[in-house]
Design a protein around this nucleic acid. Sequence first.
DNA 1: CCTTTCTTTTTACATATGTTAAATAATCAG
DNA 2: CTGATTATTTAACATATGTAAAAAGAAAGG
Lengths: 193, 193
Amino acid sequence: MSSRNEITKLLTFFREINPISREAEQALTNLASLVSIKKNLDLQPTGVTCRTIYFVHSGLARIYYYKDGNEITEYFAFTNDIIVRAESLFTGKPSKKAIQAVEDTVFIGIPSAQLFQLYDLFPDIERLFRKIIESAYVDTVNRIESIQFHTAEERYKQLLSENPSMIQRIPLKHIASYLGITQVSLSRIRAIR
Amino acid sequence: MSSRNEITKLLTFFREINPISREAEQALTNLASLVSIKKNLDLQPTGVTCRTIYFVHSGLARIYYYKDGNEITEYFAFTNDIIVRAESLFTGKPSKKAIQAVEDTVFIGIPSAQLFQLYDLFPDIERLFRKIIESAYVDTVNRIESIQFHTAEERYKQLLSENPSMIQRIPLKHIASYLGITQVSLSRIRAIR
DNA sequence: CCTTTCTTTTTACATATGTTAAATAATCAG
DNA sequence: CTGATTATTTAACATATGTAAAAAGAAAGG
């Protein structure tokens, strides 16, 4: 499969969110490039300002950071999911977070500076990305509710029912920190049948 | 102060986020209207789809909902803050959440359908609101980190140092549910001097 | 295939927060 | 001002999750 075909798949996904003109699709395609990262390696390290917006083409990735010496997973991205360290991209500050391939992963990268220039030429593209962020915002608000008002056991079981493959594909230590608990707690929860 | 002057104050605030043309400002002003709500009364009830984007002109408001019969405060909005039930606005579904005035509050309301039409006429306005949502998204991601990796005591003390007036202006029961703890827990935390 | 390393589970104990109920304190309406 | 309502604190006990250390299991490299 050529690079262009891989980007076409992402454009197809974009059409469901917000259709954009053929010229706009072409402009996006010209900006986009593929990056392959082997399992457990970082796509982007901490300490650098985020200047690229990534989508997962294949594989599985995560955003993580360190808290008191412990690695915390903040987000998992599957096929077609956006993966971006928003707190750095939107503020211009160096990111304290890193992006890592959980499996061998192919990313589609779009340089943010050039994308923002396209916003001026193609309001449709700006609208597309506005809607992507709106959707991410709603997801995040819902996640706060999930964290604050469900026990770790409830959150684990919900994750298990909504996305059972995660348990197979992702080390439990990452799932534990994503759920906001220790690995020991997760193990205990899993043991209760 | 006339209604127009109150909206002018909001436009001044908008200029710092993303300047828009004079025509765009005029179009926004034409859409905007003022709503005054007395303390403890709802601006928007639950069960209805959110069709208006509000900003706080003066006073103080919150978004809340019911969880197992208990009232949970999700968000506080101060002067110039946006207050909107995003999970309903962006999905078109009825909201399970309500907006309430914590003090006598003046809101500036912008009907979402008409605002979205303005996006077509004035890409600057769409950009302004994209940036507002991006900023809200970053705030929300940071809040997840705060909830997951700080104790309730740490979160209370941070809130106290960042925004001490909240403790005076808002009943502690609302602050407790905002922090994700019971009022009893908050009281205990406060007692430790 | 074996050794090393990484991941997951188990155990024992510590602690933060929840639950329920009652006591105080503050606010509000008449 | 006064009684009623609402908000806040306190107490006693229950429970979920954290911490530390060790054991067991799985994966990876030579």
